[in-house]
Design a protein around this nucleic acid. Sequence first.
DNA 1: AAGTGGTCTAGACCACTTC
DNA 2: AAGTGGTCTAGACCACTTC
Lengths: 255, 255
Amino acid sequence: MASSTEQKVLEPAAGPAEAEALGFRPLYRQVRDRLIRRLVDGVWSPGEPLPSEIQLAAELGVSQGTVRKALDAMAAENLVVRRQGRGTFVARHDEERIMFQFFKLVGDDGARSFPVSTVLSLSQGRSNARERQALGLSKDARVIRIRRLRSIAGRPAIVEDITLPEAMFPGFAGMEIPNNLYGLYAMHFGITIASTREQLKAVAISEVDAVALGAPAGTPALKIDRLALSLERQPVEWRVSVCLTDQLHYLSELR
Amino acid sequence: MASSTEQKVLEPAAGPAEAEALGFRPLYRQVRDRLIRRLVDGVWSPGEPLPSEIQLAAELGVSQGTVRKALDAMAAENLVVRRQGRGTFVARHDEERIMFQFFKLVGDDGARSFPVSTVLSLSQGRSNARERQALGLSKDARVIRIRRLRSIAGRPAIVEDITLPEAMFPGFAGMEIPNNLYGLYAMHFGITIASTREQLKAVAISEVDAVALGAPAGTPALKIDRLALSLERQPVEWRVSVCLTDQLHYLSELR
DNA sequence: AAGTGGTCTAGACCACTTC
DNA sequence: AAGTGGTCTAGACCACTTC
């Protein structure tokens, strides 16, 4: 029972000054932060089970209920998946999950088919001003640039320009580029995309995009400007997708 | 303590056959459903406080923890607002809330200004096939149709076609049409919009929309096809908005 | 049968608001 | 000081999965 008058603290995770500035910080929050720390450090890999609630509670010196609250919060953030009778697992970035979590384009017939991708170009170099602004990079930072065409049901539908901070992806250039990039980030670089911020606009497609998509220049298209953030809320990827929406739409469900 | 081997049930809310089909239905779920029932019945009005957790627990014959879990679920669904030290309140459909919850258009400078609206036309009549399909209406159902122009920062930006089932909005024709329709639905008709499903496409604006918006026909625009659902998940409003996105964008944040 | 997460209770104490 | 929701604990039992 919490019978002292002091707030229970797991460890001096934050410096004393910082702790004061933060004010009250519940135990389950501290547990969550520590478990996320471990996810970031790769203590458990995607798909692997975490220790059971009882084990974690014993190890951290808190009640099972507090661990449960921390894990429930992490499940709500899509960082872990809980399965009754089986355990709690580190979330995986496989196609199924990505499809529902971050890929919002749906066929007008309701079909959710994951697009097939063809890389059009891959390069590395000094970042320009817009790239630095989007990704929050410093002046001399270098970036990796990928341009690819994505087809849905055999039909070119999306051209994508992807920009990555080179420093976060050492050895990227020599790799095979898979269709599902977020899975690659997780598997080979230990980077988990935890959230995205998308800005949508309607545009007329440019000459160069028109060629790639096989549609007349000037055709209206949906431009999706996406910034993807890591678990630590650090910008990881900037992606601009130009989508033909004559046979598909962007689905947004709000509550 | 739950020492019997039977599942605790609040009341025969669901018929026996239905209960079997549903399988296990936790107590807090039953509490939530009963409280939502009361919201639907207008037992408490938007902005009003609910009884305290302790009072509800005593009244319903469950523990405070179970009531808390039900109220937390309702807060996650944006049906109530919880304020430490003050109480739990029925969510209100005022501009601030709508702005963040359902209105996703943001100025490119980051400003979230709620648009000013001008009604272009208002009519009632027999529903057509598309309207019936969108709203799930029967063959002879009548609808109310509103067309309006919305301006942001003094600039025409959106033309909207709104369709409502006439049966759900008796006396609507004689009313003043406010800028915030969802507030009107809540206040005068006891209908709370609990969720929406939006489908976005890029289109070229039609001649008639071009006139309303003061832009050349063929200009690319964002078409938002929105279905709004009540607390009981019944379709309440079908709204098609055509938006000029040269100075604003649709913001979607995914986790 | 054993182990996991899920539900439910009871009770203590805390943070915050209002009077 | 009194009342509210928020946190935390301990413990019982349930639903579900695996062996």
